[in-house]
Amino acid sequence: MYVFERKEIFFQTLHPVTLLLYILIMMIGTILTTNPFILMGFMTAVVFALIVAKSFKTWIRSLRMYGYMVIMLMTINLFINNMGATVLWVGPVVPVFGRISISLEAIIFGLVMGLRLFIIYSLFIFYNRVMDPDKALSVFSKVFPKSALLVALTTKTIPYMSQQLQSASEIQQCRGLQYYTGNHISRIKNRLPLIKVLLFSSLEDSFNLGESMQARAYGSGPRSCYYPLSFGGRDILVSFSSTMALLALVWSRMLGWTEITFYPKLGTSLTSKQHLYMIIVIGIFMILPVLVAWGWEKWDYLKLKI
C-alpha cells in the first residue's frame, strides 16, 4: 500500500521541484525512446535509484503485478502485428485478425515496449518512495492552491482509508464478526457492508478534514512554507544532470538516434561511434544523481558537504 515513510534517504531531502524534474525527464525520455540501449541506461538508473532509496524489496514485490500487464501487452502485439519480415512461425487463420504469424521483429518490438513500460512502472514506485506528500503540498499550493490541495488530499485520503478499513475490520472482529474464518460465502457476505461504510466514513472524514483545514485558515491568503525551500548544492547537482540528460536526449532525437526501425526489418540500434558516445553521455547524466545519493549514504564527508 502507498503510505509515505520518512527515512534518511538522499532523495527525500531534495527539493520537490528537483525530484519532479529528475523523474519527469526520465519519463519523457522513456516515452521518446525506442532505442534499447538508451532504455537500458534508464533502466539501470532507475533500478539503482530504487536500491539506493532502499525500496528494492517493494519493487520486487510489485513486479509480479506489473509483469503480468507487460506480458499481456507483449502478447497482444505479437498477434496484431504481422508486418515483420523474419517470420518464425505461421499459425492458423483466425477470424478478424487473419492469419496469425509470429515474427522476430514483433518479438523484439514487444520486448522493447515491455521494457519501456517497465521503466515507467519503476519510476512511479520510486516517485512514491521519495516524494514527501506534505512537502509537495507545501510547495505546489503556492502556485495552484486549489488543485494542489485537491491532489494532495486525494493521495492523503488513501492511507487514511486503508487505516480506517483496518480499524473498522478490527473492531468488527472484536464484536464477533468472522472475517478470516468461516466458509467462502459467509466471508464475502460479512465484508460487503464494508463498502457502504467505507464510502460513508470517508466522506464524513473529508468533511471533518475540510472543516479542520478551514478552522486553521487554509487558503486565507499568501502562504508561507515550512521547508527551507532554497535550492541546495544537491538540488543544483541533480537538476543540472537532469537538464543535461534532457538536452542530450533532444539532440539525439533530432539526429534520429533515439529510435530504431522495427518493421518490416529490424534496423540497427547503434549507427556510429558518436551515437555510442551520446548514449553513454545520457546514461552518465541519468545515473550521476544516483551515484551521489549512494556516496551520500556511504561517506559522512559528502553528507556534510552537499
Binding site: 509515505f4 478534514l209 515550512y226
Partner: peptide, 24 residues
C-alpha cells in the same frame, strides 16, 4: 482523531502557521 491533516507531527503543527504566512 478527526482533525489531523498532515502525516507528520511537525508538519501538522506547521500547517496552520503556513496558512497564516508565518516566515520560516
Amino acid at each position: 482523531e478527526k482533525q489531523i491533516v498532515m502525516t507528520g507531527v511537525k508538519q501538522e503543527i506547521a500547517f496552520g502557521l503556513e496558512n497564516i504566512n508565518i516566515p520560516y
